[in-house]
């Protein structure tokens, strides 16, 4: 088995004094898409935020590219090559599309073709037409594309992608599927938090199910599709 890019063991997280994650462990190998499935409030976003250093967390091991990131502020984690795409898009609406990409820009990493706005526009063609426009004038779907493009400007080796399909029209979700597959073909590993089973199935290699802050299931998507029990118990589809 390949050495994991991101290794998480015994991750716990807290909101104030309330514990919301219990001993979460997972490993993401280079180039794979791992779906973290679960209901709302199950702990998907919290897991991503805890890894990214955005909330108080505790772990036996939290490593990215073999280096502990537990004590690092989120900007240092991002600079190591771990990108984060938040659930609520969090676009800088006062800035133009181009400036949004500029905020995400980080020096290229060796062994990878660096991302440039031009290269990104080939994956997200509708962003090209509006590169000088203020982000506040974009539709929700376009903003969702921009938030991913912005993170890619940091030339990450892996991306934490938080519910990219939430609140999007079905046609836009189809575009999103293509975008995630394009990232995968570039060799970027993705840890995807998702509720939408059909979207996750279309892009992911493996799935984990989280429930009440604990991992309940782990396996390939093919297995999950067959495991009626797991789907009914945790995903309610």
């Amino acid at each position: 088995m390949t050495a994991p890019l991101l290794a998480v063991e015994g991750l716990s997280a807290y909101y104030g004094s309330a514990q919301v994650l219990f001993d979460v462990s997972l490993a993401l190998v280079p180039g794979e898409v791992l779906a973290l499935m679960g209901r709302n409030g199950a702990g998907k976003s919290t897991t991503l935020k805890a890894i990214m250093g955005l909330i108080a967390a505790r772990a036996h091991r939290l490593e990215f590219r073999g280096r502990s990131i537990l004590d690092l502020p989120s900007y240092r984690i991002a600079r190591l090559g771990l990108g984060y795409v938040p659930e609520e898009r969090r676009i800088f609406t006062d800035l133009t599309v181009f400036e949004n990409l500029e905020v995400g820009r980080q020096p290229p990493r060796s062994g990878r073709t660096p991302w440039t706005p031009e290269r990104l526009f080939s994956i997200f063609p509708n962003l090209a037409e509006m590169s000088g426009r203020r982000a506040s004038e974009m539709s929700g779907g376009e903003q969702q594309m921009l938030t991913i493009a912005r993170t890619l400007m940091g030339n990450p080796d892996a991306v934490l992608l938080d519910e990219p399909s939430e609140g999007l029209a079905p046609v836009i979700v189809e575009l999103m599927t293509k975008a995630v597959l394009a990232m995968k073909s570039e060799g970027i590993a993705v840890l995807l938090s998702e509720q939408n089973l059909s979207f996750a199935a279309a892009v992911s290699d493996r799935a984990m199910i989280i429930e009440r802050g604990q991992i309940r299931y782990e396996g390939s998507f093919a297995e999950l599709a067959e495991s009626q029990e797991a789907r009914e118990a945790y995903l309610e589809v």
Binding site: R79, Y84, R90, F92, L95, V103, G104, G154
Partner: peptide, 14 residues
């Protein structure tokens, strides 16, 4: 200007 709007996100972008 980006931080004016969302400083945490600016941090998460490195």
């Amino acid at each position: 200007r980006a931080a004016t709007q969302d400083r945490e996100m600016v941090g998460a972008l490195g």
